[in-house]
């Protein structure tokens, strides 16, 4: 059983190791403002207000603007805030790792994930296999890849397209697919329905899906990455669409991040990913509750 104080020590080592991984690969560590006038409007992500501004739900918008300004490989470790999220693996204020690479796509990110987990494992616990939730997970060169469409075909009685249509996609994903994923290796779930990928690029050859993937390890969702959409007109349409859904759910629309849309036009083809650092620490410490890998829970403040 891992104790909170030893978890905090390993947490510090893991964050050091994340930094050394990216620095050694030529990524620039950046710090973008955490208090911003607008997040990317999303149907199911609720930002906290901070005076006239918002706390960031992800540093993605400012980081993509840095891509437009010629910083081709950047990473950031920062706090993010999402209201109404509290559970075994959720806290409203959490730590995110995001990295972005120009002239790349989601394939490059998936490789980064494989190398990053391997690096963290080898440098922090000197082995590439860890035990989580009673199962040994081996983090070697290649993770398991499974398309969302195949996962629905295999583990659910509804097809991916039907589930998107009748609104049961999220529920099936959580109740049927996540528990069925192979645990002995990390899994990359790839090619999400286009409706579920607000800022991702459609996949050439199959525009019903986006070049988006999720990284799972130990049954836990660790990261969400995609080939970035860099068409400002399409992007604006998707923001408005998210706001339209918010309004129909009885929620106020969110401001549109205009400076981001303006700079998006000059963003090179890029890929970016967000990884939950707290969950990564859970994976390496064996903790089953996020509470056990952070210094203070909101309830303790």
């Amino acid at each position: 059983m891992s104790s909170r104080s030893s978890n905090l020590k390993l947490r510090a080592i893991i964050i050091q190791s994340i930094r050394s991984f990216f620095v050694s690969r030529g990524f620039l560590e950046v710090e973008t403002p955490l208090r911003i006038p607008a997040n990317a409007p999303e149907e199911h992500i609720y930002p906290f207000r901070s005076g006239e501004m918002y706390l960031n739900t992800s540093p993605e918008l400012c980081m993509k603007r840095l891509l437009s300004r010629g910083h081709g490989r950047i990473f950031q470790v920062c706090h993010c805030w999402r209201s109404d999220e509290r559970g075994r693996r959720h806290i409203p204020e959490f730590t995110m790792l995001e990295w972005y690479r120009a002239d790349s796509d989601y394939e490059d990110l998936m490789q980064d994930c494989e190398h990053l987990l391997q690096h963290v494992a080898e440098s922090c616990i000197s082995t590439n296999s860890i035990c989580y939730d009673g199962i040994t997970i081996v983090m070697d060169e290649s993770f398991i890849r499974l398309t969302v469409r195949d996962a629905f075909a295999e583990y659910s009685d509804r097809s991916m397209d039907d589930a998107v249509r009748d609104g049961s996609f999220d529920e099936i994903l959580v109740t049927k697919i996540e528990p069925s994923l192979i645990r002995e290796k990390p899994v990359l779930l790839v090619d999400y329905p286009i409706e579920m990928a607000a800022l991702a690029r459609p996949k050439p050859g199959d525009r019903s899906v986006a070049e988006r993937f999720e990284l799972y390890a130990g049954g836990m969702e660790l990261a969400n990455g995609f080939s970035e959409l860099n068409d400002p007109i399409e992007q604006r349409f998707r923001f408005l669409e998210a706001n339209r859904k918010r309004i129909s759910n009885g929620l106020p629309p969110l401001p549109i991040p205009e400076p981001f849309l303006k700079e998006l036009a000059s963003m090179p083809p890029s890929a970016g990913i967000a990884l939950g650092v707290d969950r990564l620490v859970m994976l390496f410490t064996g903790a089953t509750r996020i509470d056990d890998v952070i210094a203070f829970t909101p309830e303790e403040l």
Binding site: H44, H90, D170, L173, M196, A197
Partner: peptide, 28 residues
């Protein structure tokens, strides 16, 4: 348990016991 896939909607998974006949039920 509170769960929320990727950028998806928040789901509240519960296991409940019927207090009369003891049947266990999963509801999301």
């Amino acid at each position: 348990d509170f769960v929320k896939p990727g950028k998806g909607q928040a789901l509240y998974r519960t296991k409940m016991r019927n207090m009369i006949n003891g049947t266990i039920l999963d509801r999301t």
